[in-house]
């Protein structure tokens, strides 16, 4: 087990290093003076460009520059966003919190509901219920998320006036304590629902296939031959086996959750990473874009490591292949 985890982590390290180097090279691949990539297109105070030139050693050899870049990164210095008047790292971490606030509950709900739907549908493959689950997940999968978002806004925010359409907090009043929390949750309903619907479809499609596959495995026959009930066999024998492929899909989507919300955040003006990303493209705020790229890449690598660990938890054969003594 330990050997397996170390091997997986061992893989993550060179990948992260590669990401850092690519990020560094991007600065130099941007047409024109690399100073522009480090400062952005926003008007800057006089002398700032000169200061950056020195900080990153832009007049020195490339390797020295790489070294200085890494030193800056290690110190948490991802540059300064003049468009937002604050350093890049706290800015994107701040916005990442809001994105995760939207995405993590939605993905978790979707993972659970998608698997439960599949568990209910697969044993009755071909039935009306199963076909409806398949049809609904096909629709959920193919409906553009911004379209769904706008329909929801029209229905629940504009026509019915039940829920807020935009933003994360009410601007008209200043709330504190639990009232503020409730206010955020209130704003979370529509964007969260749009995201959840999509990911339920994504998870249910894969989960249904893998539950069907697990149901046809020989060990299910052994379990039934013991006299165990169909429901028990489904939860205790089929589900743990079916979860192994599903974990990949869920892990993958958690990895991309930081950028997965760009469309929803735009539609609902949710102040997360996606929104910042779009705004920064408009402002040609390169330091922020690079920061987002770096953060996303690292998140994907981390999610992969976590998924691999999940594999080891779900499937003893994976653990075994890296030595039984561990």
């Amino acid at each position: 087990m330990r050997a397996y985890l170390l091997a997986r982590l061992g893989w993550a390290v060179p990948i992260v290093i590669a990401i850092l180097i690519i990020n560094f090279l991007i600065i130099h691949l941007v047409p024109g003076d690399p100073i522009q990539a480090l400062v952005g297109d926003f008007p800057t105070p006089p002398g700032y460009a000169e200061q950056i030139r020195k900080e990153y050693g832009l007049d020195q050899p490339l390797l020295t520059q790489l070294w200085l870049y890494l030193v800056n990164l290690a110190g948490g210095n991802l540059g300064f966003s003049f468009a937002n008047r604050q350093p890049v790292l706290p800015l994107i971490l701040d916005r990442a919190r809001f994105t995760l606030l939207l995405m993590l509950p939605a993905l978790t709900c979707a993972a659970v509901l998608g698997v439960v739907l599949a568990l209910a549908a697969a044993p009755r493959a071909g039935s009306l219920y199963d076909s409806s689950v398949t049809a609904i997940s096909l629709i959920g999968f193919s409906v553009p998320i911004f379209w769904l978002g706008q329909i929801l806004i029209i229905a629940f925010a504009i026509k019915l006036r039940w829920l807020p359409a935009q933003g994360m907090i009410s601007l008209r009043e200043t709330l504190t304590g639990w009232a503020a929390v409730a206010d955020v949750l209130w704003h979370l309903v529509l964007p969260g629902f749009s995201v959840t619907i999509y990911y339920i479809a994504v998870v249910a499609r894969v989960a249904r296939a893998s539950v069907l596959d697990a149901l046809s495995q020989d060990f299910v026959l052994t379990a039934k031959a013991k006299g165990l009930s169909g429901r028990y066999v489904l939860w205790r024998h089929v589900l743990p086996n079916a979860l192994i492929p599903v974990a990949t899909v869920i892990g993958y989507n958690f990895g991309y959750s930081l950028t997965g919300a760009i469309l929803v955040e735009t539609v609902f003006a949710w102040p997360g990473i996606g929104n910042l990303f779009i705004a920064s493209i408009g402002n040609r705020d390169y330091p922020v874009l690079q920061g987002i790229f770096l953060l996303t890449a690292v998140a994907v690598v981390l999610a992969n490591v976590v998924t691999d660990m999940l594999y080891a938890v779900l499937d003893p054969r994976v653990r075994g292949s890296y030595g039984k003594n561990a």
Binding site: D218, L221, T222, A225, G227, N241, I244, P316
Partner: peptide, 28 residues
């Protein structure tokens, strides 16, 4: 029916199968 069969499986009639690897649950 399936429920009636459940009452007969294991006791009085149990079964062992051909390929002992695939007929045991691999993750249990």
């Amino acid at each position: 029916s399936e429920t009636e069969w459940e009452s007969l499986r294991g006791d009085p009639v149990a079964m062992v199968f051909q390929d002992p690897l695939t007929y045991l649950n691999p993750v249990m």
